[in-house]
Amino acid sequence: MGNEILKITDLKRIFRVGNEDVHALNGVSFSVMEGEFVSIMGTSGSGKSTLLNILGCLDRPTSGDYCIDGVSVNTLSKRELSTMRNRKIGFVFQNYNLLARTTAIENVELPLMYNSEVSAKERRERAVEALKAVGLENRMQHLPNQLSGGQQQRVAIARALVNDPVILLADEATGNLDTRTSYEIMSLFQDLHDKGKTIAFVTHEPDIAVFTTRTIKLRDGNIIEDSLVETQSAAKALQEYKEFKI
């Protein structure tokens, strides 16, 4: 630990809607160290989506500085931003965003398709590896519509892992899942975290945030709280949930 994966300084993002300037982010600063599991919380309109887009190199800040893995994003071209997303970032979305009628393994291979340094053979190997890591080695040839919501999200997580990113960015990754599956997915994230992955997890549910190690709360484009969490075990929560159900 100790490496600064993300570092943002006085980040501002202003949208112009009609004649009005909307300050989605109003000078936000924080860093994420290697191996942290950060939840970013806030109600809708708090600026957390905007922050996530900037962290994910999908958007650029109006002002302020953003460094990812030591590289300042502000100066990068559109093309370099794409490469950055391809090599350093793994996205997990609320609605999985898997390609329909495409097998699990092919979905996982997708990011490596855009990396010409990876051969077809290596691509397949790494995809298998990633699917094993999320426990879906038996579902590799399944299509998304043959998988449950939780399994689909696991495929999406495998896809995010396959390029060995410096940070996983999850956007309401449990938002479409029931409680039990949410716990399963959070348990998977905790496993990945234990293996040393750095994760930023955007959510508005406090009972999901308790599984992370640190919480950053946003309101109206400002950080109102940045605190360490008394981390609870998702596996344990799952166990209790099962018992309670029975």
Binding site: G56, K78, S82, T83, R85, N86, F91, L99, P111, N163
Partner: peptide, 16 residues
């Protein structure tokens, strides 16, 4: 559109 968005998010260049 969604597929295009996803492909871009995971690193597809405009050219791709």
């Amino acid at each position: 559109t969604k597929e295009i968005g996803l492909r871009m998010a995971i690193g597809a260049q405009n050219r791709d």
